[in-house]
Amino acid sequence: MIIIGERISVIARKVREAMAARDPKPLQELARQQFEKGANYIDLSIGPAEDDGPQLMDWAVKVIQEVVSAPLCLDTTNKAAMIAGLKAHNNQWGRALINSASGEEERLNNMMPLAGEYNAEIIALTLTEKGIPALAEERCEVAANIMAKAMECGVPMEDIWLDPLILPVPFQQDKCKESIRAIRLFRELNDPPMKTTVGLSNIANGAPKEMKGIITRTFLVLLMYEGLYSAIADPNDKEFMDTMKTVDVLMEKRLYAHSYLEM
């Protein structure tokens, strides 16, 4: 499974401060660490960055790709910053991933054309102005709208990663199985199956700290059984990564060897 390393996020104080001071070290350290632990993409979340979005994104993309041979997942709602990131991105190790479009009209119109224009892949959240639809079938309707827009923008279906959105089990227990079903239904929307991704840690938001690991890992197994393509997660979490590798082995997506966990 494809792992998008989530650690470089403006929500973390250390990252926020490093971005404000243009100190490359903390970002590079987080990037390197995640890459070594098996991240396939490094997420770079700068938030809305209203003051200096484009400059910040340009700088951050370059300093991160100085130290890791991986594509980045560019995470901002700021369109100008997204463009700056796509221009700065080095495609040598894979194309950039835009994080994210959604079924909201403005966001879809802002982001989807960029995927076509800059030959990037794109994550699309199946939500609209009205929020996250309750049923998996309704999320498929949103997905269909997103796919129609993609066709209009010349973005191939293989470049879209559909995200059903994960709601925390402590607050929305009845929505968990809808997200699982959504993965299955999304895949059926196209042949070859649509790619899918989730922000996994949200499942355990609000749960006691000692419960987060088991909830997240078990949810991962259920999603992977339905064919989940990728997850935004923390590759430093060894138990999580071990679970992911084991499911890959059991589903025959990774070759077994006695020491498979160590690779």
Binding site: L255, Y256, A257, H258, S259, Y260, E262, M263
Partner: peptide, 14 residues
């Protein structure tokens, strides 16, 4: 044996 082949490569790399 593919699995043993992979295992040996891992051990050598380690």
């Amino acid at each position: 044996d593919v699995n043993l082949a992979k295992q040996l490569n891992i051990l050598i790399t380690q």
